[in-house]
Every structure is written in C-alpha cells, then in structure tokens.
Amino acid sequence: MPIYVQMARCCWIICFLVFSSLFRAYEASPGDSDQLYRACLSQCQKTSCVGARCFSCCNSASDGSPLDASWYNIKHLYFWWNHWDCQSNCRYHCMLYRENERAELGLEPVKYHGKWLSRRQYGFQEPISVAISALNLVMHFHGWRSFSNLIYYSLPLKPDKTPFYDYAGLFNIYGLLAMNAWFWSAAFHFREMDLTEKLEFSSFVALLGYSIILAIIRSFSLRTDAARVMVAAPIVAFATTHILFLCNYKMDYEWNTKVCIGMGIAQVASWSIWCGATEHPCRWKLRMVVVGGIFGVVVKMLDFPPYQGLVNSEVVLNASNIPLTYMWWNFIKDDAEFRTVNLLKKVR
C-alpha cells in the first residue's frame, strides 16, 4: 500500500477519534455554581458594592448614562479607560472576594464561567496576555510579509505572473486569518466584552479549522479542486457549527477549550505523520514546530491556575507560540523555495 494512502487513513482515524471524544456532557464551572458567589452577584447588582468596595457603574439612568453626570463629564477620559459595565465589575469583584476567602481557608482556586480569575492591571483586563497577543500578531505579520515578498519578488513567476508554489494562496489566507485572530485576542484580553469575546473565539476556531485543512492539503500534496473541497467541506461545516453555537446559543469556555484542543491535536497529528514520511530538506524545522505544538496542547490540557493572578496555562501557551511562529514561517518560505526549484526543473 502506498505510503500516502497509509498516511491518509491514519490522519482521518486520528481526527475521528479526537472529535468523537469531544461530544459529551459538560457542566458549569465550580466557581459560578458556588451559592456564596451567586449571592454576592445578586447583592452587587442591587447595591453596587462587594464587601467594602463600591462603584457607580450599576447606578445608571434609564438611558445608560451615569447618574453622577458632572463627575462623568469632568473625568471622561479616565472613566472611559477604567470603565467596566455592571456585570463585568460585579463578576470580577465577587470572584476576587470569593478567591480571597478561599485562600484564607487554605482552599485551591476554582474557575468562574469557564475561566480562571486574572487580576486587572492599569485598566487592562489581562495585561500580560495583551502584550503576548500583540507580539504574536507582529510575528505573523513579519512572517506573512516576508513570505509574500519571497514568492512574488524573489522567486521566478509563471508567464501569467502567478507563483510556481502551489500553496501560495492558501498560506496567504492563513497569514490573514492568523493576524485577525491575534488582533482580536489582544482586544479581548484588553477589555472583555460580548463583542470582543465572540470575535476572539470565532477567529481562533476559524484559524484552527483552516489550519487543519491546510495541513491535510499540504501533507498529501492535494492539488485538484475536487480533492481540496472534499477535505475542506466537513471541517468548515464543523467549525461553522461550533462558531454559531458559541455566538447564538451559549458562550461556553470549557466546551470551546475542548474543541480547540481537539482541533489542535488533529492539526499536529497531520503534520507529525507527514514529518515521518517526507524527505523534505527542511523537515527538521517542521519537526520543531510539531514538538512545540505538542507542548502547547499539553500545557492547554494541564490548565493550571494563574500564578499571582497573572500567568496561567493560556499565557504560557501563547508565549510559546512566539518563537514557533518565527520557525513556522521560515519553514513555509523554505518549502516555497524547494517546491519552486523542483517545478522549474520539471518545466525545463
């Protein structure tokens, strides 16, 4: 049996096992199921106070403007930068209050609404995550720009001015999706709102789904439109259904985490199988990316609480993506050169 047929079978079996394991019941996080936390939320929405701390965001007129309009006008910029709506403030301060109580009792931290509590700093929801997301965005922009310059200006082009590299368009789309995802990641970690939450989650699901499609197409050298559509259709359908579920039914963090881990495993599995079978001269770079991807999946699955309320497993995962992104785009550029040279030899 040809090696690529064996690879295809292994890849689809792994993908099936990964995704079928995701469909099981999920429950609310321990923190938001806590009766004391719920009582704190209810009291906060009535009094705008959590313990000795009070704020004015829940005391608004019927049109949503603050009752203390003069204070709002005088300190408009400061209010905008540090303003949080009633629900966000009540959730954050009730979580903080309950976690302090738990720490005094010697209890371990728990999740609230599917997430660990992260402490606000300088008006940022999660300042370290914002910085890391911005760095990932910069790395993808640099990689995408250098890739585009390579294939359109450094390497030979066909008579119709299109690249010889078969996957140029696919990787250009990948670069745009990656930059979009990291932009909304930075926006979400800067200020968690319903809009930024939906855009961040949807963008990463779309990126992960597209990454699986790209991994399969490149690994098995699929060049015909029919073969690419057959691969893409079920994955696009799955990713779209999941995005619609999150945006229109329930924004469930833990369920989304399971889905994203499954999609990450499927992508890593596809590249891993190809790494073991290919004789590509730059396969060592891809192997480093695969090892880094496995590390990221393991860290995400460990899901440990934030150290000092700032650094959790997601922060470590996103930070590890920065050097991997550099290595990944280097491999893509090497692959473009390798494929172009081989195709030119055949043409001549």
Rank of each mutant, 00 (worst) to 15 (best):
T224W: 13
I216L: 12
K258P: 11
F238D: 02
A237C: 13
R228E: 05
E254S: 13
V205M: 03
T257G: 14
I235F: 00
L207W: 07
L208N: 04
R228H: 08
T241E: 02
Y249I: 15
E254R: 13
L214A: 11
L246A: 07
I216H: 05
I212T: 02
N248W: 13
R223Q: 14
A227V: 09
C247T: 14
Y249P: 05
G209K: 00
S270E: 08
K250T: 14
A227L: 15
A206H: 08
H242F: 14
V236D: 02
E254W: 10
I212K: 00
R218C: 15
T240W: 03
A232P: 09
L214R: 01
T240E: 01
C260V: 11
M230F: 08
I243W: 10
A206C: 07
P234F: 03
T224I: 12
G262S: 06
L244T: 10
I243V: 11
G209C: 06
S270C: 14
W255K: 14
T240Q: 03
L208F: 08
V229E: 10
H242Y: 12
S272D: 10
V231Y: 08
I261S: 07
C275A: 12
I235E: 01
L222D: 07
A233V: 07
A237Y: 05
I212E: 03
W271Q: 11
Y249V: 15
V268T: 09
N248D: 09
I217Y: 04
V259G: 05
T240K: 04
E254Q: 12
